[in-house]
Amino acid sequence: MRVEGNHRKVEYLRGLSHLHQHMRSHGCRYGFIMTEIELVVVRNGGESTPHFGYLEIQTIQLNAHDSPEVNTSFDGSYDEEEVKPPKMTALLALWYLHMLARDDTLPGQVGWKSEIGAPAEGTRRKCLPKDEWIPEPQLAEKREAKRARGWVWPEESVGRKELGKRGDLCV
């Protein structure tokens, strides 16, 4: 959907932003979306407080499968140099996501918990420039964002929607 017209790009981004919102509200670093044709695996940055809106994305086709092609000789031995690494399948990716969600982190990976904090801490202001392929939001999309969450751009101040009934910050 990224390479199609603006309408499809917006649809793609709407699904990712919905996932991003849930990941931030629950303090999760890893997530996924499964469609009819692919699994979209998402990581919310590699730092303890991730950049707002920055998602590392990998897609895996659901029909992908791994068939080990090992050249064996008549005596049952095989040549280790010709063994190919396993191909990433959707089930293998989901298992790996499950392993990343453990409390004990895997070597070379970051933990599942991201430190988002309260809205007053301003972690959504920590953002990177927008990619070139992302279309500019329409006026209706800006109005919808303002109505739903109280702000449009990450640099804006904390809105009333983010505050509680007595002025306390919602966490």
Rank of each mutant, 00 (worst) to 15 (best):
Q138G: 14
E141L: 07
G45P: 00
N63W: 09
M88E: 07
L39Y: 01
E121N: 14
V158D: 01
I116E: 01
T89G: 04
T35L: 06
V3Y: 13
L106F: 02
R147C: 10
R125L: 07
E155S: 11
S73V: 10
I33G: 00
V83S: 01
T59S: 14
E115C: 14
P135N: 04
V10R: 15
Q21V: 07
Q138Y: 09
P119I: 00
V83P: 01
P86N: 03
R102T: 13
Y54G: 07
R147M: 12
D75G: 08
G27P: 05
Y54E: 13
A118D: 08
L97M: 13
E11G: 12
V3F: 10
L13C: 06
D104P: 06
L62K: 06
R29E: 05
E4S: 14
S73Y: 11
L19A: 04
P86S: 07
L39Q: 04
K113M: 09
F52N: 02
E141A: 11
F32Q: 07
E69V: 12
R14Y: 03
D104I: 12
Y96D: 06
G122L: 04
Q109E: 15
W95K: 11
R125M: 11
Q138C: 06
R166L: 10
G164P: 01
G122H: 00
V83T: 06
H20F: 08
P154M: 03
E36I: 05
T72S: 14
A140Y: 09
Y54S: 14
H98K: 10
G5N: 14
R43S: 14
K130G: 02
G111W: 02
H26R: 15
R125D: 06
G15P: 00
S157F: 05
H26V: 02
R143N: 10
E156K: 05
K126I: 09
V40E: 02
K126E: 02
V40D: 05
E144I: 07
G111E: 02
S25E: 15
Y30M: 06
G27C: 00
R125I: 07
E11S: 15
G108K: 05
R14K: 11
W112C: 10
R8W: 09
I33P: 00
E162D: 08
T49K: 05
C127F: 13
G15H: 10
